[in-house]
Design a protein around this nucleic acid. Structure first.
Lengths: 369, 369
DNA sequence: AAGATTTGCGAGAACGTTCTCGCAATTCTC
DNA sequence: GAGAATTGCGAGAACGTTCTCGCAAATCTT
């Protein structure tokens, strides 16, 4: 018996009347061994309730069959939970377990978490980098051969695999959708980690998915012939107070937007809240759309039009690529960019079919309904 | 150097010109050692980029500083993600990492997951048991001394610590709240895992939080003087199709409920969806309240009245009790039941202030507004 | 100043596996 | 039926730590 009272393979061997080596052979199915002995050892193991010690196996084999997931807990967008589930499930299918760390968007915590996971000798890492600025902890030399796959955020300057979504196209498509429905005044509400309050000035440094969304929105506007003066941009701290203030500012404009694009669900919720308080009906008095689908967005009436990201695929592909790298270190590093999808629901009014809803149209149809 | 190319403590010792034992003493701060030597060894470790191998440490020490979390991925109620974050964060503070497994409510998967975590030699387990029926895999003998804390679901027949919420009182309070606002026809929509479609017959076996909610609702009705004929109960499979059909059935009753209590957010979303499709305004034409708060429920207009559960506390207390058991196996097993809180928002109409909304009142105030 | 104590460090074992190597017993070959 | 090949198994090392033990050198006692 071991110190902890758990039976070891030595106990199995003793119980079966064979040597430790033979017991190991019998249980792990390798080498030359008589079928009859295998049966006897298996029975002995069963009898004494033997459980292989994976720590000792890891020690011997030099691999732990464990991967580390370093991610940012983020509830409203359901990225954290959906990706975590996808990673855990895919990892299980591939024979791996998942050690999870939450960084809360703090680069120092991230550094520490990665260090700790490397000490735990994970076979690979999946990381959502907190910032796009520094990443020496993700350098070749810091990782010393441990494979890493980045998710959700690109780090262009680093030669690692990454799995992201095509947020540029998604955002572009969103603007085109609203434009095709006759909208002409566009509000953009962009959540930016690290900012204070809200501002019209575009921050210099944004994490890649936000950067992409901003560029995509802007490009979609150009493609749809939307003039700059038809656009209002607000970059906002990611919390209820700031975002609601920003929404109020947006709605208080002399020429308020007819449609508001939000960069994540926190901002969407702010729009819902403020609009509701002002008795503005979503999809009628004010239109809104956002990035990231959810069961809530789908079940609300009116349903919220969203750019859906294949979050489960992000997790799955990250694990698959990581496992490939683990099995064969010469596996090519790849930068996956998964397609997004516009789910048109009812939160964006069709001003072409209902021009009376368009405050920017000359003729006043109001109250006619 | 080790096989994997990573420097070991032997390399540190060589670099510093001391023995392995001394290097270990210097780095782990124990035993008798000269301050000057400590500095030299630390410098050497730094220079060659030494990282302690926690697998080897675990092997030697007989503990991994890792706990296992076995939980059911469940998005709309945000139990999975909130509890996971709380567990991970608390564990980190206590010096532990978290291995996570998802069971998808499948008892066989749960059994396998626990087995695997035990083989990984986790120091303790936090488990949301999939079913209340069988639990031999959680018996003393299966666990062999590994401490376990149950969360969200009680297993009365087993002597393990558990952390749950007072769902009985929460549900009771919910009914009283609606009754105090003048409601007189109550619909109860209860999600039951494992059922097909929906039925009025109360299932024999339900997981403890659902059992508690049902009993709490029922008791609250009695306390508020609500007669059985004023109550409609529907037990429903947890998916959009069944639940929406159930809501429709509820609303199609000759005397439809004025308020619907749902046992989780999936059921709430079904109510939102069906009510919306029928142009029934929440908090006006139909009232609704549910268990579990969320940012969505709070941001919607009208805000959804909920019984909030202290989910973060569940995760935190579970870890704290688990760590106590790990440090001292004689720690008493405890069954924590955390208080719930009613958050009154606008989704339950006040029929006393606005009797015209009450279809059950004799005088017809309708359309008067 | 000589014995007693303290200090600093190295040798070696142990944790629970897996796997190489070698050896005896069995089976095959012609 | 004797040598060759094969089969089955045990001894022992290795993975990277920590920690006990013992020993020499340094420091303390009176």
């Amino acid at each position: 018996m071991s110190k902890s009272g758990q039976p070891t393979i030595n106990d199995v061997a003793a119980e079966a009347g064979v040597s430790r080596a033979t017991a190991s052979r019998a249980l792990s199915n390798y080498g030359r061994i008589a079928e009859e002995t295998v049966e006897r050892v298996r029975a002995a193991a069963e009898r004494i309730g033997y459980r292989p010690n994976q720590v000792a196996q890891a020690m011997r084999a030099g691999r732990t069959k464990t991967i580390g997931l370093v991610i940012i807990a983020d509830f409203t967008n359901a990225f954290f939970d959906r990706v975590t589930k996808a990673v855990v499930d895919t990892a299980k299918r591939e024979g791996y377990q998942v050690l999870i760390s939450n960084t809360d968007e703090d680069i120092e915590v991230e550094r520490q978490a990665i260090e700790n996971l490397l000490e735990k000798k994970v076979d690979g890492l999946i990381v959502t980098p907190a910032t796009v600025a520094t990443h020496d902890h993700l350098s070749e030399r810091a990782l010393r051969g441990t494979p890493v796959v980045l998710i959700d955020r690109r780090l262009d300057s680093v030669r690692l695999s990454s799995v992201t979504t095509d947020d540029f196209s998604g955002a572009e498509q969103a603007v085109r959708h609203a434009a095709s429905l006759g909208h002409s005044r566009f509000g953009f509400l962009i959540a930016v980690p690290g900012i204070k309050g809200f501002t019209e000035d575009r921050p210099a440094l944004m994490i890649s998915p936000i950067e992409d969304r901003v560029n995509g929105f802007a490009h979609g506007a150009i493609e749809s012939g939307v003039k700059p003066k038809q656009q209002t941009w607000l970059f906002c701290e990611d919390n209820p107070l700031s975002s609601q203030a920003a929404v109020a500012a947006l709605l208080d404009r002399p020429k308020a937007p007819t449609v508001i694009f939000t960069s994540n669900n926190d901002m969407l919720l702010a729009v819902l809240k403020v609009a509701g308080n002002r008795r503005l009906r979503i999809g009628t008095d004010i239109s809104v759309m956002t990035v990231d689908d959810s069961e809530w967005a789908a079940a609300m009436v009116p349903g919220i039009t969203v750019v859906a990201r294949p979050v489960e695929d992000v997790g799955r592909i990250a694990v698959e690529n990581l496992v490939a790298q683990i099995s064969d270190p010469s596996t090519k590093r790849e930068k996956f960019v998964l397609p997004t999808e516009l789910l048109a629901r009812e939160s964006v009014a069709n001003l072409k079919l209902r021009p009376e809803l368009d405050p920017s149209s000359q003729t006043k149809y109001r109250d006619q309904e």
